[in-house]
């Protein structure tokens, strides 16, 4: 069973330094927890470039295309000449096309956060560790994957972490 070590820090600088240190030593799959976004942490953890902007662009363009199709399609389905507008009156279609672009883009952005950051997971093994709740209050945590937390690899990992001034190191099981 793969598991990991949970490391607690008192400040964001220590967390950042530890993430850089452990990655330099070759540890991968690090995850950090903090009460606010720590500048530079994504680079320190080696996070890939987010694809959320692309998803939002696609979502927004889908919204644009959908309302254009509905507006133009409705005009073809029930041709009604009104107010001197030609049947294909693109300028009059623009306000709704604009609004649905924004609407679809925003919905995509919100759903992307839920999906990409794995929300809707109301319980996590970390939640069973007393004191972990301070990750949303005032403490900074790092998880380091480690096959055997109490054995040889765990000992080496703890030795590597000792240079980072952790408040404490706790073993955690994986879900």
């Amino acid at each position: 069973m793969t598991s990991s070590l949970l490391v607690e820090f008192a400040s964001e600088e220590q967390l950042l330094a530890a993430a850089l240190h452990m990655r330099a030593l070759g540890y991968g799959d690090l995850e950090a927890y903090s009460p606010f976004p720590v500048a530079g942490l994504d680079a320190a953890l080696g996070a890939p470039r987010s694809r959320i902007p692309l998803a939002v662009l696609i979502g927004a363009l889908t919204g644009l295309a959908a309302s254009y199709a509905i507006e133009w399609g409705a005009t073809l389905d029930y041709p009604l000449r009104v107010g001197g507008f030609p049947l294909y009156s693109l300028p009059a279609f623009i306000p709704i096309m604009f609004e649905t672009t924004i609407l679809a883009g925003a919905l995509t952005a919100f759903c992307a956060v839920v999906v990409r950051s794995g929300l809707l997971q109301w319980w996590h093994p970390l939640d069973d560790i007393a004191g972990f709740e301070r990750s949303v209050i005032d403490r900074f945590f790092l998880t380091v994957p480690c096959d055997d937390p109490d054995g040889h690899t765990g000992m080496r990992c703890r030795t590597d972490l000792a240079a980072c001034h952790p408040v404490r190191v706790v073993p955690v099981g994986q879900p």
Binding site: I52, P53, S117, L119, W122, S135
Partner: peptide
């Protein structure tokens, strides 16, 4: 809270989405 834990992966998506919104 939808299972928010302040993970770096949460914050990464959050910040980009917040900026885009």
């Amino acid at each position: 809270a939808l299972g928010w834990r302040g993970a770096a992966s949460h914050w990464r998506s959050y910040r980009i989405a917040y900026l885009l919104l």
